[in-house]
Amino acid sequence: MADPTTAMPASAQPRQRRRLVRDLKAMPGFTATAWLCIVTLYLPILVLIAFSFNENRSVVLWTGFSLDWYAKALENDGIRNAAWVSVKIALFATVISTIAATMAALATTRTKKFAGQGLVYGIINQPLMIPEIVTAIATLSLFALVKKVTGLTGIGYLMLAHAAFCIPFAYMPIRARLETMTLTLEQAAADLYAPPLKVFTLVTLPLLGPGIVAGAMLAFVVSLDDVIITLMIAGPGETTLPIYILGAIRRGITPEINAVSTILVAVSVLLVMLLFLVQRRMQR
């Protein structure tokens, strides 16, 4: 055992010095502000989740734990239909946008720089740069015209609109992945007698996998959460879950909405956490 009187200052000194350095960087009130941000961002959602488990009809007073509202929500035909429409649209939009984004990402990273590359980036990111309400009414105008000319109706319009605004979201992680993947691996495969198609299927695609998964998950979440474009374009019988929730809120607040909202939030959060894990694996 070391003598405590000599051991003490030896262990206390470096700690003190470290605190001094950290103090130099710290600004008064910044830590509190950061925590305030977190509270602001999370408190409303946490309250909503908590009251979705409230036994009472009241969304004000807590009386006890219950899963009744979830049972009610799941039995509600309106909610079930809306959920099914949401999933159908999101799946279609995810598949189309992920394929299109993967191809575009390959074109912008695996071929030589070309004239007009900036324009291509601009077009792909265009849905991100314009206020959603503008895209929404513009798309509505186009679809109204197409409907008038062709007489075609149906959920296809919504699916296509979702696919369009999902492309930039799917494109981001796929392009990022391709940019960190060195071309050397593909060259090594070609060097070992793999023809271009085999290089793609045996090396590029498997390594790009995590990026594609990340892109698809983002596209799915973004499609699932969309309100404005869907609200403007959706025809009768094409109510998605967010649109159903918006209508229900306008009619009045019920714990049932809290339950559906909690489910939707949970799906998004789970997907994003999964994505986070995939990306951490990618970095290794």
Binding site: P127, I137, A163, A164
Partner: peptide, 23 residues
């Protein structure tokens, strides 16, 4: 490159940029 870019550009041009012209 042209083939790879075609789907993404077609979808966005037709469903996001063309409508702006209509607007």
């Amino acid at each position: 490159r042209a083939w790879l870019l075609a789907p993404a550009l077609t979808i966005i041009l037709a469903i996001s940029i063309l409508p702006l012209g209509i607007t």
